[in-house]
Simulated assay, not measured.
Amino acid sequence: MPPPPPDVSPSRPPSDSPDDRNAVAKTWMKRGIALLSANDPAALSEALQCFDQALAIRRELPFEESAWYRWLLTACWMNRGDVLTRLGRPEDLSAAIHSFDEAIFHLLHLPLDADPQYRSRLALAWMNRSLALRAQATSESLQEALLSLDRASKVLEESVTPQRPLGAAMPATVLINRAAVLLELSPPRAFEALEVAQTALALSQPTEHEVLQAAEISLKARHIFCHAVAVLLETPPVDATHADDWIMQATDKVDEAMHLTASWEQHAGAAHFRGMRQELFRYGCHLLLAYQPHFLAEFLLDVLDPEQGSPLLAREGDLYQVGLQSLDLAASELRRRGPLDLGLKGMDRLIDVLETLSRAAERIKKRAKLLSSG
């Protein structure tokens, strides 16, 4: 439950003391943050009102003479921008960008070398500004979003000292956002997005089994990598050698994601990865179905067969349904091609593949039946 709103009625005016007035603002901020954390769209308008109340008070505090009051003022602008971005209407997004611009203005007037939190929030402000620009979804706003992400990266680089090395989480998050924007450009810069996602994955992968945030970043990086591969494969001309390599890398990343999410769910109860796991699994199935159906059975058994894959994944019914649909589609597509497309030797190979798909389907159907009866 959010805290009750502070009593600032006319019958009880706040004290003239800056600290007392800030205490009222702090109560408004806590209430707004609680509403924001509830992840309830219906609460966003009330959260915005809370942050506006806090902002109105803190704008009157002596922030010109106090870095502490200026720092608190930036928190108001940051939270206000966050709410407006989530509200998402055109006028809200424009107001969100203005809020982040105000936060950046005040952060730049802080002694950035005095406290590492100053540069961290400045980088976050630039990154959040890029999210609002991305949500506007125009060619101009997407280009400006990339520039904002460049500024975030520069701020992070400037924050590094021998005593304060840069961690992996924030740079990887900036890279993830950059890769996503690159795929939304027209035309998409898919190869660049693929490379950026790969870099983000390299930063987060070493700790993905121990740190939840690293696991989330790694999964998003794999997701964007697979999306970039799908775009590249649909953009002619496609070099066959590169295509095979991209597909292999993408399906490897899907397989890694399956086991990573299963590990987190088994040992830490992190079931919130399930939606992303299913989406990545569909990516793997669709890529192989479209371009390498002869490898589909092996991929599915690696994931769904408890003797080869994770016992936890072998109990997930939704994955079985996606797998069986993919097997049926692969068999239909291969039969459609026939001898005219493949020749006699190709037909021998086709028969072998169809038999493999059929055996895999039977094995998976048996497992699905056991799952539903259990």
Rank of each mutant, 00 (worst) to 15 (best):
E256K: 09
H209W: 12
E256S: 12
L203K: 11
P236V: 08
H259E: 03
E184T: 06
F299K: 09
A257Y: 00
I217L: 15
F273Y: 10
A200I: 01
A290W: 05
A240W: 04
H259K: 14
I217E: 09
R222Q: 10
V211G: 08
A243V: 01
Q213C: 10
D245W: 15
W246Q: 07
V231T: 12
Q198W: 02
H209E: 15
W246R: 02
A297P: 07
E192N: 01
D239W: 00
V238E: 01
E195A: 08
T199P: 03
Q213V: 12
V196C: 08
A240R: 13
E216W: 13
A193T: 04
V196Q: 05
P293W: 15
A202Q: 10
L232A: 05
R274N: 11
Q249S: 07
H286C: 06
K253N: 02
P206Q: 04
H294W: 10
L232D: 03
A257R: 04
C226R: 00
D252R: 14
A221S: 07
Q278S: 14
H223K: 11
T251Y: 01
W246C: 07
D252M: 09
T207S: 11
T207M: 04
S186P: 01
M248Q: 15
K220E: 13
L201F: 15
T207L: 05
E298R: 07
V211D: 14
C285G: 03
D239R: 05
R189F: 00
A268R: 15
W264E: 07
Q278Y: 03
R222N: 08
D244L: 10
E195Y: 06
A240S: 11
Q213T: 15
L296K: 07
V254R: 07
G275K: 15
E216A: 15
A270V: 02
H223P: 06
F281S: 05
L203N: 05
H286N: 14
L201M: 04
M248C: 10
Q205T: 08
G275V: 15
V229T: 05
E192T: 02
L232Q: 06
H223Y: 06
